[in-house]
């Protein structure tokens, strides 16, 4: 490991510490001043917090230094006109591999999402096993996969974002009425969980700008 990697880890450590420090201060204040209770298993909790900070820092460095750059290179190659259809005029249907890549990356990165793993653990615990942790993670990952694939299509086709959002929320409203009552809060929470760690190396970055016949000018993709 070279100096660059070490500085990257140091950077990540500082930024995760900045994330954890205010939480620690608030918890300590309320625990010691308001609740006036000693923290049970203090040593274990402190060691656990060190694990959280260290683990997140390593996780982020691994993603940013190695996996995201690779994802960006792959996205650029996949959206290269020479790869898509040599010589011909490009059409939205030429982007099949891009949609497939978007879907696959959305699925696989969500399976590895730490915050989702945490929520899935909790859901299994409180439901006494009725909510299967892997089942929940796979369901959310499929949702993200479809969202990113559709998002890639939207960027390629240049169709307006709000139509997709309105359609999506309409489906959510219908499902809220029809779904079993105890899955609804979990479903709502899963939306907030999927974006916590990854800055998402989607093909969006590659698809932006290579699209020649986009009709709506001034319409920038959200990611």
């Amino acid at each position: 490991m070279d100096v660059d990697a070490l500085t990257a880890i140091a950077h990540a450590l500082v930024s995760t510490l900045a994330d954890v420090l205010p939480i620690a201060v608030i918890l300590l204040f309320f625990q010691l001043v308001v609740l006036r209770r000693p923290i049970p298993h203090l040593r274990r909790v402190l060691v656990g917090l060190v694990y959280v900070v260290l683990g997140l820092a390593l996780f982020l460095v691994g993603l940013e230094e190695a996996l995201f750059p690779l994802g960006r290179v792959m996205a650029r190659q996949l959206t290269d006109p020479a790869f898509l259809s040599p010589g011909a005029v490009l059409d939205w249907s030429d982007y099949g591999w891009v949609y497939a890549f978007a879907f696959a990356i959305g699925f696989s990165t969500t399976i590895a999402e730490p915050a989702l793993i945490a929520v899935a653990f909790k859901a299994r615990e409180v439901s006494g096993g009725a909510v299967n942790a892997w089942g929940l993670r796979i369901a959310v990952a499929l949702g993200v996969a479809i969202a990113i694939a559709v998002g890639a299509f939207r960027i390629v086709s240049g169709t307006p974002l709000h139509l997709y959002m309105i359609a999506g929320y309409a489906i959510v409203i219908v499902q809220t009425w029809r779904a079993p009552r105890d899955i609804v809060p979990l479903a709502y929470d899963s939306g907030g969980v999927t974006t916590s760690t990854k800055a998402m190396a989607t093909p969006g970055g590659g698809a932006r700008g290579v699209w020649p016949w986009r009709r709506r000018s001034g319409h920038t993709p959200s990611r």
Binding site: L54, G55, A66
Partner: peptide, 25 residues
């Protein structure tokens, strides 16, 4: 890429351990 993958794996494992030891409790 391989080094990055090792970092991600170890990092995620540490985080999940810390989750059960600290954040949840």
């Amino acid at each position: 890429i391989l080094v990055g993958l090792v970092l991600v794996t170890v990092g995620l494992a540490l985080f999940l351990r810390g989750l059960e030891m600290a954040l949840f409790p």
